[in-house]
């Protein structure tokens, strides 16, 4: 069975963060380890946190998802020990977690988790941002236009480039206004053509869709 660690301090049943955790766990034989990062270590707060997690568990069980609940006081060492104890996990998802300044300074923060854990660590905010970006339609490559740019680039490097040496004396390095303007024109055109040709590379390397 896989495990997702979900860290939060509010545990709002309707929060988007919790919905992301549910979505990730549903139908994938995944358990959610719910970590309640409490605001303080008083008995009352810890007790309330435990009760909140119990109600969350009831909701989750109706969805057919197994959960384990863990309440942690705002102490960096205790927090990191708890997270390490829940490893291995396939994902650490952070909702509205109240990391105190003392915890951050002592090395317990979102950044610290990303540094120290080998599994993916992400926040609900970044998932939301990524989903919002996704909503915008991805620019499709117009292959006909791209081929035109590629031909233009081939001409620039294959035909124009070898001629620059002779053109330097007559025009580009002549030290005239026309020479200066020609340089700017060539650079603008070349940057446009070659820049549009190379846009395909991140897609070829699957860094972009």
């Amino acid at each position: 069975m896989k495990r997702i660690i979900f860290i939060d301090s509010t545990w709002d049943i309707n929060s988007q963060a919790l919905q992301y955790a549910l979505k990730a766990a549903k139908g994938t034989d995944t358990e959610i380890a719910c970590v309640f990062l409490a605001a303080d270590d008083s008995t009352e707060t810890i007790g309330k946190a435990g009760a909140t997690l119990d109600s969350v568990r009831e909701n989750f069980s109706s969805e057919g998802i197994g959960i384990s609940s863990h309440v942690v006081a705002p102490d960096a060492e205790a927090f990191m020990t708890k997270i390490n104890g829940l490893m291995p996990a396939s994902l650490v998802l952070i909702g509205d977690a109240a990391f105190t300044n003392e915890m951050k300074k002592a090395g317990a923060s979102v950044e610290a988790l990303k540094d120290k854990l080998t599994c993916p660590v992400t926040t609900a905010d970044s998932i939301h941002a990524a989903h919002s970006e996704k909503a915008a339609p991805a620019k499709k490559t117009n292959w006909f236009v791209w081929v035109l740019y590629a031909i233009g680039s081939a001409l620039m490097y294959g035909v124009f480039f070898p001629k620059i040496e002779s053109l330097n004396e007559k025009l580009f390095m002549s030290g005239t206004v026309l020479g200066g303007i020609s340089i700017m024109a060539v650079v603008a055109i070349h940057a446009w053509i070659w820049g549009n040709t190379t846009t395909i590379l991140p897609k070829l390397f699957r860094l972009e869709k």
Partner: peptide
């Protein structure tokens, strides 16, 4: 570019070779 061009210091071969690598790396 214009001012260095006026002084005759811009050899476009260097600039175009820089572009060959830079507009790949920049993405």
């Amino acid at each position: 570019a214009f001012n260095y061009g006026l002084q005759g210091y811009v050899d476009l071969r260097l600039t175009l070779l820089l572009y060959a690598g830079s507009l790949v790396g920049i993405y």
